[in-house]
Structures are given as C-alpha cells and as structure tokens.
C-alpha cells in the first residue's frame, strides 16, 4: 500500500450546529482511520461541543438554512429545532453514527487531539471543569499554528 501524502489534518470548529460538528468529527476520525494525524481546535460556538453540560443539547439550525426546505417563519416556531434535531439524530443512529459524547471518546481514543481555544474560553468565562475530561488542553492560536508547522499538514475551518 502506498504511504499517504497527507500527514496531518487540523480542523478548526467554530460552530455548534450538528451538521458542522459531525462534518468535523467524521473527517477527523476518517483521517485517523487512514493513518493520518488529526486534531480539532474548538473555538467560539464550537466550544459548546466540549462543554459537559451542553454537548448533548446540540441542534440542527432550522432558521436561515435553505436546505432544510422549511419556510423561515415556520422554522422559527417553538419546537421546530428540537423536532428537526430529533429526526436527524434518528437517521444518524440508523447509519450507526455515534452520539456526540461517544464520538468524542472515539476520537480521543483514536489519538485525535482535542483542543479548546484560549481566547474563546476566556470570552465565554469557562473553567477547565466545564470542559470534557478527554480534552488535551487549552491553546492560543499561536500554539495551534505551531502544531501545524509540519510538511503535508492541512488546516480546515468549519
């Protein structure tokens, strides 16, 4: 088998809507499965994903998302987001896609590094105890760029 040319994938996850989170997770996990190093830097709303109390309550966006094919006015009605999220989670379960907490565990066990953005942590007044136990640390963007300083490394902003 030929050795892969991509050596490392670094993801910056700035959103907490389910579709974005899963995109990052599946790509980061997929990288590890292909023998590629991967790391995720959680920043801004992406921090919701690594907060113990919030990670189970991530939603899919029903407003401002034309691909949902729900009129914006309806998408804003109470319960719509919850309903759409429930439906999407059901479909995901059918494909054996793990829920967020289990996926984080799989990523960590697979050697994918999970980092929180220092500036965003400070901005949202978060403490280390608010964040998941398998977090690898809190980094500045400079620290993160240092981790990217290798041949055949790619950065992806989600």
């Amino acid at each position: 088998m030929e050795k892969t040319k991509i050596r490392k994938m670094l993801f910056i996850l700035s959103k907490a809507t389910i579709e974005n989170v899963y995109a990052a997770f599946i790509m980061a996990n997929g990288a590890r499965m292909e023998g590629i190093d991967s790391e995720i830097f959680f920043t801004f709303f992406g921090l919701e994903v690594i907060q113990k109390k919030k990670l189970e309550h991530l939603r899919v966006a029903t407003v401002g998302n034309p691909a949902m094919h729900i009129p914006t006015m309806l998408g804003g009605l109470p319960g719509m987001e919850a309903l759409a999220t429930k439906m999407m989670k059901k479909e995901m379960e059918k494909l054996d896609m793990p829920p967020i907490d289990e996926f984080l565990e799989i990523l960590s066990d697979s050697g994918c590094k999970l980092w929180a953005c220092k500036l965003a942590v400070d901005m949202f007044h978060l403490k280390e105890k608010d964040l998941i136990d398998n977090l690898d640390g809190i980094l500045t963007i400079g620290d993160f760029y240092n981790r990217a300083d290798k041949d055949n490394t790619h950065l992806l902003f989600i």
Binding site: N29, M33, D96, P98, E102, E105, D109, S110, G111
Partner: peptide
C-alpha cells in the same frame, strides 16, 4: 455485519486505543 470503529469499541475483544 459492517465493520466500523464504533463496532470495535463495542466488540469486547479490544478497545480503540489498543486497536490503533
């Protein structure tokens, strides 16, 4: 049955860390 990393986790044979 399809193979997946999640399946490995649940397999009871090996955990993901050891698998890697």
């Amino acid at each position: 049955e399809p193979l997946s990393i999640r399946g490995i986790k649940k397999s009871g044979v090996i955990n993901i860390k050891e698998f890697y």
